[in-house]
Design a binder for these strands. Structure first.
Lengths: 404, 404
DNA sequence: GGCAGTTTGTTCTTGCGCGGCACAAACAGG
DNA sequence: CCTGTTTGTGCCGCGCAAGAACAAACTGCC
């Protein structure tokens, strides 16, 4: 007993520097066993063992002594690594046009508990954020698990480093609301431990897809999505979100994709925003948008149930062509190695994948030689999971300090 | 004597990990003294001293024991750090439409020796690169200094990771020429020690400006330049060139900047390429481009000597407006914290800086709140210096290994 | 000129993270 | 049951850097 404790002490004091990278490997599913961890970290088995033991001692991961399923290869089977199901969680929150919601998310991007969506969103950010944090705090109390931080996804560009919402979309918040500070304050007031972070929803969706979804393994990942009105973009470079020097990067909505197109409030014509969002789809298909459900839902319904209608089909093809034009422009500038589409763009793409791929390849320089892989997003609630990623980041960077 | 040698040994074996960062600080002029180095590295004085001593022992920098000029502050003056003037150099080479040339470049971006420009550029890359390497080798022999690598700047996008020239501009090389391999081979054959690198000239100019020129201190630096025909772009993110996943990033020439504009070979109209290059300027000013000197020289001459002519002035303003439109589009996507212009764009900007600044601020989202600083490039031969940076990079990353 | 105060350089000790090695453990196959 | 292979563990030592104590070089004041 005593000897075991002593050896544990020894282990605990080793491998501090590699702790973060090791946890990130387990977190993103790239280190299923200790042997793989050893190889991925490029360290000795002794160091990897010490690191894994310390992460286990911190309650973050589990090291199975007996490998459940024997690996097909010969030699001694390696210990299986997994996220500790009883480990800490983070509070993830999202505000969007249809309401707001809170969830608890563990390591590995696993949603542990979700509160029902609340609607509508009041005009006062402080009130809404207070309610969503309260919902999260209730989930936390019920779960009895430790909380190490909180993340919030908002449908607005955020000025960096202030964290004020520049253009809240589909919610009646005033532009310039200090959402980052307000959220942090509400989190603190609710007695939730750990730091609080706020990010743009499309950026966070991209981050989540990169770590746990359709973007895994991509070096330069471009995400483009349209929800209700307008188009959002995000870029993950070498595993890190690129938000630009003041948080305004990837404002892709005003790329010109149709010189003769619809007028846009920006003063130009044929912007991606007004040519490829759900409203543009409905108008192109000759439908009158109704007020009862969201434009996105109406568009989805149209695409699903009336795709036989030539007008709908033609409208879809038109939007795909415009979207392809915009993506090609982005490809020429950013040269990503993968593109992920969200919202209506994902559905349009799914309806005719080859058309979009062809347009992008045709309009981008040297697109013929290869072509960028295009995929639909693969995660449910990816903005929520992305918000959780923000909160997990300090733990991934330095577990010892973050959990101290 | 013996004691001194022993203490030197001790110093030499310390501070290995911080060696690269320290050299980079001196290289980029951010560590003029040992005290500043200590602060920038965030280490103790002892460690910084050991690092500086080892870099001096490697022949890379010099540590002046007596500070030349007393600093205005009180306390003991710190030892001055400088690049060792007798230290190693790298071979830098550049090929462009008007010829090719070789130079020797030391640390700190200082050009040590330059061979005269040779013209014209033959159609065979192997021949041209053989000649330019031979010119560099001659410089090396004459200088008697140690060479630790070679870098080449070419006017073409390079496919990564192959290093083949995709679209050689203004030189009669076949598309797809394996310039990186050919250059490396010629360098090896000439008996030049150290690895050989090849990059796009605009990218390398951006890198040089970031480290030694108008881009110093910028986090996200965007460079746009026009030489003879077409427009090139480059992006430095957190000190590293962003070339995209296959080397094709920042192909900015086909951004639409004038929907009703001139037709472009890409099939579209009003591309940045055909609207803002020297040919566009001459045509807009109503001048017939002559064959005797380059389009860039004709444009510069026109701008310098006939700026009183209303037609020239109007043409300049038109180009600035188009360029501003393109830059605004890039700002919306990349959100850089500084923009540097090269070639004719620099001259047009210098002729009326406020006009371009106003257009960019007006056309970019939230441009009013701040506005991106725009500057002309500040370095002579920035592509050449950038090519040298490529060759220095291994030394900056790990001096001990690179010089072994 | 002398003295206090400040900043920097140097030496020595200490700690600790990790590589390397030897050995034990767990599997497959003959 | 033995061999070969792969993985986990305990132990040693090395290299890197922090910290403390001291020396050195300069400013400003008396």
């Amino acid at each position: 007993m005593n000897g075991k404790a002593t050896s544990n002490r020894t282990k605990l004091e080793r491998g501090r520097g590699a702790l973060g990278p090791a946890l990130e490997l387990v977190h993103t599913g790239r280190a299923p066993t200790r042997a793989v961890l050893t190889a991925e970290l490029g360290v000795t088995r002794a160091t990897a063992g010490a690191v894994a033991a310390e992460l286990e001692a911190l309650g973050l991961i589990r090291v199975d002594s007996r490998p459940a399923a024997a690996a097909g290869s010969q030699g001694r089977p390696s210990h299986r690594l997994s996220i500790d199901e009883a480990g800490p969680v983070v509070l993830a929150a999202q505000v969007h046009g249809d309401g707001f919601r809170a969830a608890l998310v563990g390591l590995g991007g696993r949603t542990v508990a979700t509160a029902p969506t609340c609607a509508p969103v009041a005009a006062d950010p402080a009130q809404v954020l207070g309610e969503v944090v309260a919902a999260g705090a209730a989930l936390l109390r019920r779960s009895g698990r430790r909380c190490v931080g909180a993340g919030l996804a908002v449908p607005s560009a955020l000025a960096e480093p202030e964290g004020t919402a520049l253009n809240p979309l589909h919610i009646a918040w005033p532009a310039g609301s200090p959402v980052r500070d307000v959220f942090a304050e509400r989190v603190r007031d609710a007695g939730i431990t750990g730091p609080a972070f706020t990010g743009n929803d499309v950026n966070l969706a991209a981050l989540a897809e990169h770590r746990h979804g359709a973007g895994r393994g991509a070096r330069h990942l471009l995400c483009v999505a349209t929800g209700h009105r307008g188009v959002g973009g995000a870029l993950v470079l070498d595993g890190r979100l690129h938000t630009g020097s003041s948080g305004l990067a990837l404002e892709v909505g005003h790329l010109t994709v149709s010189p003769e197109g619809r007028p846009c409030h920006c003063g130009s014509r044929g912007c991606l925003d007004v040519e490829t969002d759900p409203l543009a789809f409905l108008l192109s298909a000759g439908r009158e948008p109704g007020p009862e459900v969201s434009l996105l839902q109406q568009s989805r319904e149209l695409l699903r149930s009336e795709y036989d209608d030539p007008a709908v089909r033609r409208a879809g093809a038109e939007l795909v062509d415009r979207l392809g034009q915009g993506l090609a422009g982005l490809v020429n500038i950013l040269n990503p190695d993968r593109i992920i589409l969200g919202g209506l763009h994902r559905e349009l793409f799914a309806a005719d994948p080859e058309r979009l791929r062809a347009v992008v390849a045709d309009r981008s320089l040297w697109g013929r030689s290869g072509g960028v892989p295009i995929l639909g997003c693969a995660l449910d609630h990816n903005s929520l999971v992305g918000a959780a990623e923000l909160a997990w980041q300090p733990v991934l960077d330095d577990p010892l300090t973050a959990l101290a």
